[in-house]
Simulated assay, not measured.
Amino acid sequence: MIENSKGIKIVIVVFSILLILTAGVAAFDNIDKNRLHLPVNGSVGMIHISWMTPDFEELVDRSDLIIVGTVSDKYGAWNTEDGSKPPRYALVSTGISTYYEISGLEVLKGSAETVTVRAPGGTTGGYTTTAEPMQELEVGDTVLLFLTNNYDSEGNPITWYHIGFPTVFIKNGDGLFENEFYGEISIEEVEKEIENSKE
């Protein structure tokens, strides 16, 4: 009877250990499956931005560079140091930006020979980050941009400028530049305001 009881206890202990091991393997398998089911392609997040919209005089005054130019190239890149795809667990937290190269520059304020601007949201390698509200530019658009300098972690100027919805004006069919916040404006009005800001 005692021997029987010992045998039953051993079977119960062995069975319990097997159950625990099976549950552990299942849990790790589930974690692994969840890790693998992060998006292979498709949406990796949405950003909603509350833009600050200063009055037009302040926008002109605080801009380091004001230019007119044409969008000559457009491409998306991950927000990593080298623009490459991050590991899967960081896809959503890293996000994507769109870069626009601007050519045929007419500089109204500041100094620049080449300009690349960066906007939140974009697509690269089948992945997309959506940003709202954001005006998407297309190659061939003529734009008026109000830009501020950007610096790296060591304080050195970097080659791209970050653009927000209120700082981008697109040329319309009437030859004026417009955006949702400030409406239509001419180059002459901008130049006049730049002169006023020097006084």
Rank of each mutant, 00 (worst) to 15 (best):
V115Q: 11
P86E: 00
A23N: 04
E101M: 10
L105P: 08
I163Y: 12
T53G: 01
P157L: 15
V68F: 04
W51T: 09
S72A: 15
S197G: 06
E184F: 04
G122F: 08
T128I: 11
V190I: 14
W51Q: 06
T159E: 09
G122Q: 02
T116W: 05
E132P: 01
V11E: 03
L91I: 10
W160L: 00
L59T: 10
V11A: 14
G69H: 15
L145S: 12
L137H: 06
N30A: 09
F169S: 06
F181K: 14
S63K: 06
E113K: 15
V68D: 01
G7T: 12
Y99F: 14
G164F: 14
N41E: 08
E180S: 13
E178K: 14
V60G: 11
S153C: 05
E106Y: 06
E154G: 09
E136Q: 13
P39V: 14
K9A: 09
P157H: 12
E195Q: 08
T123N: 04
D73S: 15
I163C: 08
F181N: 07
I163F: 09
I8P: 00
V13T: 14
L38R: 14
L176D: 00
S93I: 15
V60T: 12
P39M: 08
L65D: 00
T124I: 13
Y100D: 05
R88Y: 04
E193W: 09
P54L: 14
D32L: 10
T98S: 12
E132L: 14
R62L: 15
T128M: 10
T114K: 05
G95A: 03
G69R: 15
K74F: 01
V13K: 11
S186L: 14
V115F: 11
I185R: 06
K198S: 05
N4G: 13
I66D: 00
S84T: 12
V44G: 04
V40M: 01
T53E: 06
Y161L: 03
S197K: 10
L65H: 02
L19N: 04
E189A: 13
L144F: 13
Y127E: 00
V14S: 08
G110E: 01
N179C: 02
P166H: 07
T123M: 06
I47R: 11
P133D: 07
L176M: 13
L147D: 05
V115T: 09
G140H: 07
S16F: 01
F165T: 08
A112P: 01
W78F: 13
D55G: 04
T116I: 15
G122M: 05
I187Q: 10
L36N: 13
N41P: 00
S5H: 09
F56C: 02
D29F: 12
S197V: 14
A131H: 07
S5T: 13
V25I: 14
K198G: 05
A77W: 04
Q135S: 12
G125W: 03
T128A: 08
D152V: 11
K33M: 12
Y151A: 07
T124L: 01
Y182W: 08
V143L: 10
V25G: 02
